[in-house]
């Protein structure tokens, strides 16, 4: 886990790698240097369109392109993709099930210094409530590469969530990924830590800390929040009897909620949630904000102890 790459960087690289497919069109809203769609633009400038600072317009233009058979990647910050353009994503992309991939970068508080106005902590809740929308939040560069390529191959709308901050590469290059299928990174029998995004690497550290206390923690990466891999979650609940969810998102409406929805319907066990506790973020260095909002291995360990007491 020594190498660190931001998932947005891996996204840009993946787009450049699949760009030989002439059906792919990439849109950006004046942020191509930040979203890294600039990597695609370098190789395929004729299929990269800057729509300017007009995210709502971009999403509906993407819908129009997709209606003519294009595979469209539309990118901006998560805040504007899911927030500002929600109506366009819902009505012009989601409702007609058009083949648009929303590449939403700079999600969550690890945006850092830009502060709360740019830190989307609601995007997964918004996107997963749109019927038929696939929602993906990869943990590292390797899974990002694979999942972006799979999203490009499937027909239908996908919301892809990426981060600004460099994050550890946790997967080996030969790992197999499948949209909608969670990954058991580490087996364990006492508690299951279910995470996504950069919180997966925090969960791995937490599991190592718990091991020193003699607690065997399973770590599961739910990179696809929708459709969610109910099977792996139910299995974890049956075999460990306690779940901790970890996400860089409001604890309302995100991964924690999605996991809880699966459990209450199938196999209820105690759940604790690590995430943003229904407050807005703020400016600061990402590392300081991770501490401030409790997105730490320490907090995951604490929640694991708490959930174990509830078993």
């Amino acid at each position: 886990m020594s190498e660190k790459i931001a998932t947005r960087v891996a996204y840009g690289q993946a787009l450049a790698e699949i760009g030989h497919d002439e059906n792919i069109v990439v849109l950006d809203a004046d942020l191509s240097g930040s979203t890294k769609t600039s990597e695609f633009k370098k190789k395929y400038p004729e299929r990269h369109f800057n729509i300017g600072i007009a995210e709502a317009n971009m999403m509906a233009i993407a819908a129009g392109l997709a209606s003519c058979g294009k595979t469209v990647f539309a990118s901006t910050f998560a805040m504007f993709a899911a927030g500002r353009a929600f109506d366009q994503v819902r009505n012009s992309i989601g409702y007609p099930h058009l083949n648009v991939k929303i590449g939403a970068t700079h999600a969550g508080i690890t945006v850092g210094e830009d502060g709360a106005s740019h830190q989307a902590i609601e995007d997964i809740a918004l996107m997963r409530s749109i019927p038929g929308m696939t929602v993906v939040s990869p943990a590292d560069a390797v899974s990002t590469n694979a999942l972006v390529k799979q999203a490009a191959k499937m027909v239908g709308p996908v919301y892809l969530r990426f981060g600004r901050m460099d994050v550890p590469v946790i997967y080996s290059a030969d790992t197999k990924f499948e949209l909608g299928k969670g990954i058991t990174i580490k087996d364990g029998k006492d508690v299951a830590i279910v995470a996504n995004g950069f919180m997966v690497s925090q969960a791995i550290q937490a599991a190592e800390m718990l091991a020193k206390e003699g607690i065997s923690a399973r770590v599961i990466d739910i990179h696809t929040i929708k459709p969610i891999d109910a099977e792996i979650i139910i299995k974890a609940a049956k075999e460990t009897g306690a779940i901790v969810t970890c996400e860089e998102h409001n604890v309302i409406g995100g991964l924690g909620s999605a996991v809880a929805e699966v459990l209450v319907k199938n196999f209820p066990v105690p759940v604790e949630m690590v995430g943003i506790e229904d407050v807005f973020g703020k400016s600061g260095k990402p590392a300081d904000l991770i501490e401030k909002y409790g997105l730490t291995p320490d907090n995951i360990v604490e929640k694991a102890r708490k959930v174990l007491n509830r078993k």
Partner: peptide
């Protein structure tokens, strides 16, 4: 307001 943007996308595809 969304339809005209979609029409722009269709024209761009054309």
């Amino acid at each position: 307001g969304q339809g005209i943007s979609a029409a722009v996308g269709m024209a761009l595809a054309g």
